[in-house]
Design a protein around this nucleic acid. Sequence first.
DNA 1: CTGTTTTACGCAAACGTTTACGTTACCTGT
DNA 2: ACAGGTAACGTAAACGTTTGCGTAAAACAG
Lengths: 336, 336
Amino acid sequence: MASVTLKDVSKVAGVSYATVSRAVSGSPEISEETRRRILKICKEMGYTPNSIARSMVKRCTNILGLIVPSLNNPFMSELTADLEIYARNRGYNLMVCNSSYDHDLELEVFSLLIGRQVDGVIMIPVGHEPYDSLSALTRQVPTVFISENMQNYPENYVSVDNFRGMQIATEYLCSLGHREILYFGARSDSKTHELRLEGYLSSCEKLGLAPHVLRSSYSRSSREVGYTLASDYFSRPRQETAILCSADMLAIGVKQAAYEAGIRIPKDVSLMGFDNISFSALPEIDLTTINQPTQQMATSAVDMLLDHIRDPEAAHTRLILPPSLIERKSCRPIKA
Amino acid sequence: MASVTLKDVSKVAGVSYATVSRAVSGSPEISEETRRRILKICKEMGYTPNSIARSMVKRCTNILGLIVPSLNNPFMSELTADLEIYARNRGYNLMVCNSSYDHDLELEVFSLLIGRQVDGVIMIPVGHEPYDSLSALTRQVPTVFISENMQNYPENYVSVDNFRGMQIATEYLCSLGHREILYFGARSDSKTHELRLEGYLSSCEKLGLAPHVLRSSYSRSSREVGYTLASDYFSRPRQETAILCSADMLAIGVKQAAYEAGIRIPKDVSLMGFDNISFSALPEIDLTTINQPTQQMATSAVDMLLDHIRDPEAAHTRLILPPSLIERKSCRPIKA
DNA sequence: CTGTTTTACGCAAACGTTTACGTTACCTGT
DNA sequence: ACAGGTAACGTAAACGTTTGCGTAAAACAG
């Protein structure tokens, strides 16, 4: 497993190892003839440059850290895949860490990544932290937040317009004749979920609807949480004709609970999600939802991060992408 | 962003930087008193050890490479999550790369990871490569394959007993009275899928059933592939009463195609999968399937890899875990 | 009190690169 | 032919650690 180094190659080639370095790293200070000769020897000897040593002197690793609450959520795993592929095409590798929806762990892996000397960090935050502890970290390394609005802080972020997205959803349900719409969400310690809720509330006001809000005590937008909360909800009398969930995974959990409670969707109650994960398109799920342009979010986040790595003094950037309605069959019009 | 080094701390503490190094790295060659004093100064100055420099001299990075065909497949993204969490708890970070079901890309990212000086590689292979090109890489760094049987090669791997799993599935369908069972699978250039097919065939022979096999020309076990292939299948006359898929994602695609073709599951045809991804438990999917013990696969793979990092000369290890039947509602008994 | 071991620390080399600077040798223009 | 310039390569320092070795002082045994 002992690998061959520049020094080894230089001995064989009969040149200094600086020359070999210039040959492999594409420096212009070398003749084409010797370059070809040296590269040939490198190939024969199976030389691969040690990127650790290179990082040491160049003071950059070409590694990006990614902190994600969970990979069991398809929205996040698909985003992760897009991020990794695009980053690699731009010459960066990803070090991925699960925060498991845990604030403390999130901060812990963040400093771990800093110790790893990553050139930048992309983070899908669990929610809003006490900003002090977070900014102590973002000051140390270029960071962009994804899928979370950091509008009150000097941070880079790219997200969908969550406020507008929920407005679109609420308006859509209202246009179908729903007047009693339940907003069903995760605990809003994240600005993202706060904005979604506010979008709902603002539309309610504008449309003259009475708001109904049911929120989980977990910040996790998982199927299990949706299922548990909805099972309880369905066991009691209710007046709402539509349920608007703050995430598709939550909606899928709700659907499961509805199924077990003998409540048909959309016959008995209409159901909407938010995210447009790929599973929502299945005919058995067929969930009307709000789309997040994940691919564009991924490429923009990487671009944004690399820009800030190149120029750490650059002003903070925010990018808010437009959501769109994906109409499927989980909602139906009701008579007035 | 200029970080504080050992040298900076040593100046303040009035000791040599070797002493500071011993203080932070927990060497016994230092008095408890000075250790406490130095660690206090470290904290005050915000010192974080540079793991790149450490890797340089220790000749190990505490980084593991993970190569995975896709993160859009829940089986793989859940496995990835388990691997990352367990590896991190054992002091290793994961560098994740998508191979996008591409053999050439798979080899390319593998050498990329070697250049990154990862201590080991965990790989979910796309399928069987020409073994020469692969072994040229596995010789350079400890590697364990996961979810793929490498029984014909001197490699470490952990997988479920795919052969037995498909036997269990076939036997189960037969016990429900099905005599005409379609095996619906991805192209078998992977040993995993070859073994699954063989398990089916062996059970067919044992049970006196005529085998029916339909295989995709893609190695990708995605919903789209299942949907496309099944749409075509359902458009023609058929005699099978049950469809046994080589992966849950394939089965979900089949279910989608069945839905659109007006074919009810399990009323018109029974359907089985393999993998037991979390979505299969949804009441709308409710797929009878074969469980893979992913969590145990993940921890075993990491343990196995770390063992071989510690002792690279150790004999190759193979671990084959037992599959189990998860009975849900996508299959029904038929009359003889 | 002497001789030996142990403890706690400093010194310096090493890990494999990159790159500023120095040094040739060759080329150019006059 | 000569000054000046340039192309091509070598020398050595630097990046931030770890660690073997050396050494002084402290601890210990007799």
